[in-house]
Design a protein around this nucleic acid. Structure first.
Lengths: 230, 230
DNA sequence: CGGGTATTTGACGACTGTCAACGCCAGTGG
DNA sequence: CCACTGGCGTTGACAGTCGTCAAATACCCG
């Protein structure tokens, strides 16, 4: 998750130095937008941030929900244009550091290079899982899967309260993530609630029947575990 | 594209050593399958290879068409299970090398580490573009975009003959890549042919009207160029 | 309490999927 | 040389998931 966790002390100190500081991003504020030139990368310390791309006609596709500990803004070229936008859903705290430092780190700290490599491949696998879902699953499967995924990612961060998590995103966010309209997303959510699989209200999501929800979603927990426990 | 191109001589020699050899993969043969343990990574020298994931119900989603020069099999964990399958569409030539060597390279050759980092972010951007397409574009846009993308990727490899490329994939491949059924893919292709935008027959794709096809696809060439010209 | 945002529903339409059949073409074997 | 066969491409009719439009309701924050 975090890029700078299990490295030796000298490296850790070094990375501290590289950090150009923490940054509080208010809800709804953009951290960066597609097309801007990209000077910094970020670690998300607290909050929910959506990474998305949008089309000329206004439609948007959420690429990823970034949760605390996640790493943002790894664009192809340093100072090249950002390839997607990042917007805070809740007030968020990020730690920014210049991308030039990243280059230095790759040079001088092979362990960080390896760790970054691992993060990349893991993110790629998640993106591909997402692709599979949008391309080949039904609306119900996609939404159930997303809920399961978010629940477990929060739980792995120690941020679940039993079978409940704080859930600050709107149905429009869900719709934009799974490639459906808000209206249809709403219908599916109602369906899942009527079936007593979930309950969501006032910024909270409760998984009422994890087993059945997992079946609906064709969710395999080992995928999430694999990805997040080093 | 290729991982080992613009590095200095010493490093290049070293990578030669690391290669455990070339490998000819017959058409339709799998290079590896999802779930197998992953010992090697590959560079594709010649041929078309599809990377895909599939569901229990048999539906498949093509994640990427790998073209000559592309790099395959960068899975999260060395010796961990492969997260997708790779199958040769045409007879293909790949160069395999053990993933342990990759780890060594990250340690000892920072330029390769940086290059690998760049490849990862670029692949990620392509995957996200793909996600945007499947999630938010119409059938016609998706297919037109795919054709444009494949044409330009081939052209950048010097493998286009004017406005024509060899095109060894079936309509089922296209369908599995853009998240549609074969039947509907066929209808859209016919529509594009009737509009005299493309012509495809016998393993060849011809772009008859690149400008209009690009408009239908909302295709921006700078995306492809950015990705492939270092 | 008021105004804006988010959720919810219904009716309707359309894009895409399903089912089924046929044609085309290349390779194979008699 | 010509049937035979299997894979792929092509079409039509029909069904269904999902999108669009519109309006009402609920919720949050100042």
């Amino acid at each position: 998750m975090a890029l700078f966790e299990p490295v030796d002390h000298e490296q850790l100190e070094w990375t501290q130095k590289a950090r150009s500081g923490q940054l509080v991003v208010p809800s709804r504020r953009h951290l960066y937008r597609e097309g801007e030139s990209s000077n910094d990368a970020y670690t998300l310390f607290d909050g929910w941030v959506i990474l998305y791309r949008s089309l000329a006609n206004g439609k948007a596709q959420i690429l990823r929900f970034a949760l605390p500990g996640d790493f943002l803004a790894l664009h192809p070229d340093q100072n090249g244009p950002r390839t997607h936008s990042a917007q805070a859903v809740t007030e968020s705290v990020v730690c920014a550091f210049p991308r030039t430092e990243l280059v230095d780190m790759l040079h001088n700290h092979p362990k960080i290079a390896m760790r970054l490599n691992w993060i990349h491949t893991r993110d790629m696998t998640m993106c591909q899982e997402h692709l599979l879902g949008i391309g080949r699953k039904s609306a119900e499967e996609r939404i159930a899967f997303l809920l399961m995924e978010l629940f477990h990612r929060m739980r792995l961060r120690g941020r679940a309260n039993g079978n409940q998590i704080v859930f600050p995103i709107t149905q429009e966010h869900i719709a934009d993530a799974v490639g459906l309209t808000v209206v249809h997303t709403n219908r599916i959510l109602r369906q899942l609630r009527d079936a007593l699989l979930i309950d969501c209200a006032r910024q909270r999501l409760t998984i009422l029947d994890e087993k059945r929800l997992g079946e609906v979603a064709h969710f395999r927990i080992d995928m999430v575990e694999m990805r997040h426990l080093i």
